[in-house]
Design a protein around this nucleic acid. Structure first.
Lengths: 394, 394
DNA sequence: CAAACTTACGCATTTCTAAGAACAAAGTGC
DNA sequence: GCACTTTGTTCTTAGAAATGCGTAAGTTTG
């Protein structure tokens, strides 16, 4: 077979197989790649050298000598995670498998500027890392998520009315003291949908996640790839106009947005107007879970209104799975009951027939797990691993 | 550099560079791929052998011996094209560059079954091909487009109320007598968006095309990839519910769809109710272009209503370009005037600020060009060319 | 106008990857 | 216990691609 006419599998591809769990022995790698045993052995050796692959004990015999099983070396490095919210920032240290090793919540004032918040973040991240002990592996990447539109190239917020003071402020410099680890920044709903595609759900190449919290957002995976749009504004469903919100003023300054009647802040506003003591959508959700009739009605109604907008999105994207996340997902049954009502009424049947609607898998750890996943997908990509092997080889 | 840690460029990749016009000389190929002169020469020779690359005369010297320029060998094969519409089927023979060498229109009755239409299509295609003469290159692929949802794996229509009788009928068997050339089937709006991404516009990785004809459809390119959705139903914007259509019965059997007030058939219906003599949306467009006030109002109004739905799509997808195609695009100015009105009113500013709105580039040849592009993207893909080289080499 | 320089390309030589054979190791099955 | 299977390693070798060299064909400079 001439090498000019079929690209042989590189070390990075071999690693991807092991990481995905598609191949756990050298033979399986050979099967999947078509590589000879010699070639497989060479690549595996290089990966073992980097600690990315570790040889565990023997596997089950299939009639002959039992194979040495290969596992993804999750301990070869760590990833730092910063999930920034409006009132709370979640920090974490993860291994290369994306497992949260240590986490910490940082409460903050709404409207804190990056100059105020980010140095704290860096300090606490360093503490979290140091708590792993002196023998901890090196930091290979840092994942950051933000609400609002994000410029993923520059790594900063972009035209987010909700994140005043953050526009255009690059976050990498604040996180430069971690051995020059690359910093990856993305929108919060975007990283959440990455979190949902871990494990079993990786098979779903077309996934739509809605984040229904204080604001509304969506994360889109189409064709197996996270879609950010031309300027990074993809998934902006909160300010889609809907008939039911006609004339209602939104916090974005416009009128008629779904968010103005179905977003978390709108529910809080409405309950407050009734004299109820709530300050955050989580309070409303807690009331609903506790059986409060008015709160339940509101959340169900929110689901209905969001369902109308999602119906359009389902018609357009035809996803295989619709994941419901965000604070309102904690009152999943009541929220989704409303959402199903209008979604199945308004979306075309071809698209809804096989559509699965599921709650988010990781609850409020979703943001952190997604950030880790985002960073790891970059740092452990086929190309990146190929580069690592090439550099180590020299 | 160890070969196990960086995949060398294959013949297919070299071909892709030449086809895209990114490299026109052997040196440029070397630059782009990092391959040595020997390796480049070997790959180019293999491609020349297949006729996929031809050596034209000398290029301009850059201070030394002038290079031999390499061009994509568009004459190494032909592609057959079948763009099926409700009342008309367009046939064409294309070269490998997607240039339409010969075309033919086949008028048909609305509701013709595949058993009636497809044999005619095959016969006329054979005639078109034979008209090229006896020395014509072999047929390397056949591209087919259909209105409605398409199962691209099986190559057939899927649950299309508008294409009764076509559901589940695989089209490949009807087109088997062309040397076993592979048959690719997709939705009409999907192939149209492929047609729009040829040439200059290839740079736009996020493109949304609306086809406003008798019905409404959309083609989506996100992240540089045509998106079909989980079951192939992506782009179904026509039956998205809108307030203005409340209570109006749609041909799909539901009520409230945009199509029921803004689709071509709805405009025809409304004009007919006024006693006007129109039978097809093209008649309405012709009236509008001719200056008929009522027709112009209707088309502008259709643009407005479609703009409301597209606003949601733009929020969700954040495309770089919105292409307006279909019969109504022939009255572009008046239609887009209405569309702009509501689109800019309803969509978020981050997404519309840099959004370009453009008419389709190829008019009613769009379907054929898109079909050719779809087939060529498959037949001339990196992988396919690698395979061709490997087989020829043996 | 000729000499020097630049760029392009083919050919021979060398380097190096990876396939294949041979062998050792460690199991299963009769 | 012995034949057979499967895994993993070492050694040899075929073949692909990099490198160096020679030649071709232009541009630039003196």
């Amino acid at each position: 077979m001439s090498r000019s006419s079929s690209a042989p599998a590189t070390a990075g591809k071999v690693f991807a197989l092991v990481r995905a769990g598609a191949a756990t022995t050298r033979s399986e790698i050979g099967h999947h790649t078509g590589l000879s045993r010699t070639a497989v052995a060479a690549r595996v050796a290089a990966l073992q050298d980097l600690g990315l692959v570790v040889e565990t004990e023997e596997g089950p015999s299939t009639g002959g000598r039992p194979p040495l099983t290969l596992t993804f070396g999750a301990g070869a490095g760590i990833v730092l995670v910063v999930a920034i919210g409006r009132s709370r920032t979640q920090l974490a240290v993860c291994d290369l498998a994306g497992e949260l090793l240590r986490t910490e919540d940082l409460e903050q004032e709404i409207g804190a500027s990056p100059g105020e918040l980010m140095p704290k973040v860096a300090a606490h991240l360093a503490d979290l890392r140091d708590a792993l002990g002196p023998g901890a592996p090196r930091t290979v990447g840092i994942g950051v998520s933000l609400p609002g539109t994000v410029d993923t190239v520059r790594g900063c917020s972009l035209d987010s009315p909700m994140m005043a003071g953050w526009d255009g402020v690059e976050l990498q410099p604040f996180l430069a003291d971690f051995g020059g680890a690359p910093v990856f920044v993305d929108n919060d709903a975007n990283v959440m949908v990455l979190a949902e595609r871990l494990g079993e759900r990786r098979q779903f190449d077309d996934m739509l996640l809605i984040k229904a919290s204080t604001g509304l957002g969506a994360g889109i995976v189409s064709g197996g790839v996270l879609q950010r749009g031309a300027v990074g504004a993809a998934g902006e469903i909160g300010h889609t106009k809907t008939a039911a919100a006609q004339g209602v003023l939104c916090r974005c300054g416009d009128v008629g947005c779904v968010e103005a009647i179905a977003g978390g802040w709108a529910l809080v506003r409405d309950l407050q107007e009734q004299g109820r003591d709530v300050t955050h959508i989580r309070d409303v959700v807690a009331l609903a879970v506790g059986g409060d009739a008015e709160a339940r009605r509101m959340i169900r109604d929110s689901g209905r209104r969001i369902g109308e907008v999602i119906a359009g999105a389902v018609n357009l994207l035809d996803p295989a799975v619709l994941v419901v996340g965000g604070d309102m997902a904690e009152a999943y049954d009541v929220f989704v009951a409303g959402l199903r009502e209008t979604l199945y009424r308004d979306a075309v049947s071809v698209a809804t027939r096989a559509l699965q609607i599921l709650p988010w898998s990781h609850g409020d750890r979703s943001g952190m797990i997604g950030c880790a996943s985002m960073a790891l997908d970059q740092v452990l990509s086929v190309r990146a691993v190929d580069r690592m092997v090439a550099e180590r080889g020299r």
